[in-house]
Amino acid sequence: MIVKKTVVRPHWKKGYRVNARERRHFHDINDYRRYRLPPPPRGYRWFRADNDFLLLGVTSGVISSIIVGR
Rank of each mutant, 00 (worst) to 15 (best):
H25D: 13
S64T: 07
P41D: 00
R9T: 04
V3I: 11
P10G: 01
R33S: 08
K5W: 11
V62L: 14
P40H: 03
I29Q: 04
S60W: 05
D50V: 00
P40N: 02
E22C: 05
R33D: 03
W46T: 04
V62W: 07
R21L: 15
H25C: 09
S65N: 07
H11D: 13
R9D: 06
D50N: 05
R45T: 07
Y32R: 09
R21W: 12
M1H: 02
P41S: 04
I67N: 03
I2F: 11
T59V: 06
N30T: 14
Y16L: 14
R34W: 06
L55T: 06
K4P: 11
D28H: 15
A20S: 12
A49R: 06
L55I: 06
N51E: 15
G43P: 11
R17N: 05
S65F: 00
L54R: 01
K14Y: 08
N51W: 11
I67E: 05
R23D: 09
T6R: 09
I29T: 02
F47L: 14
R45E: 08
W12G: 02
H25T: 12
N30P: 09
R33H: 10
D28N: 14
V18S: 04
P39M: 08
K14W: 06
F26D: 05
R48G: 10
R9M: 05
A20N: 12
F26R: 06
V7L: 13
F47H: 14
R36K: 15
V62Y: 08
M1F: 00
R45L: 07
K14N: 12
G61K: 08
V18Y: 04
H11P: 01
P40S: 01
W46Y: 04
I66C: 03
L37C: 03
K5P: 12
V58W: 01
S60Y: 05
G69K: 04
L55C: 13
N51V: 09
K14H: 11
P10K: 00
Y44I: 04
R36I: 07
G15D: 13
K13S: 15
D31N: 14
K13F: 10
R21F: 13
V7T: 14
G57Q: 09
D52V: 03
F26M: 13
W46V: 05
D28W: 15
P41T: 00
R17H: 05
A49W: 05
H27K: 15
V58H: 02
S60V: 04
L56G: 00
P38D: 01
V68C: 02
W12N: 04
D31A: 09
G15N: 10
M1S: 00
F53S: 06
R9G: 02
Y35L: 01
R42W: 06
F26Q: 07
T6Q: 12
P39Q: 10
E22N: 07
W12E: 03
H25L: 15
T6M: 13
L54G: 02
G69M: 09
Y35A: 02
G43N: 09
P38N: 00
R23L: 15
L56N: 01
K4L: 12
R33A: 04
V8T: 13
R24M: 13
R17Y: 01
V68S: 01
G57I: 06
V8E: 13
Y44W: 08
I66A: 03
V62Q: 14
G57P: 12
N19F: 08
